[in-house]
Amino acid sequence: MDPSYALSFKLNGRQVKQEVSPRTSLADMLRNQMGLTATHIGCEQGACGACNVVVDGKTVRSCLIFAIQMEGAEIETSQGFEGDPLMATLRENFANRNALQCGFCTGGMLLAARDLIKTTPKPNREEIREHISGNFCRCTGYEAIVDAIWKTAHEALDLEGEK
């Protein structure tokens, strides 16, 4: 059986401890040990984006990082962002625009969208399409996702406190 090692890090704003096997990916730890199941595993190869999480302020693939590397890190998952108005608006617009069907890509897609609006506050459709091209969606054909992100970025959202 696998050995396990103690680990301490910040997760969605709270300091936590975990014991992990060296071979456990960050995605597997979040899902299987911490119940954060909105971080989905679609390929374990870094290709699909469903497992995106934010580590130390940067969006990364949690399937391509070993959990044991996370000592001292700050991790946010798509289930975090409590009180984040941008994430709240994205969620609302994704649901209203039907920018998700099965919902499996959604957590990763929301993080990609949030990243884009943080760095490019008023992206055009091409920039949105380019930016979310690291996230695979099999259901929507992407247009509704582009619409929802565009609307979030361009319409009546006061993000000044956010920036």
Binding site: R61, A112, D115, N135
Partner: peptide, 9 residues
């Protein structure tokens, strides 16, 4: 090179 999340790491 790949996509954002890969370039971040």
């Amino acid at each position: 090179i790949a996509h954002d999340a890969i370039r971040n790491r």
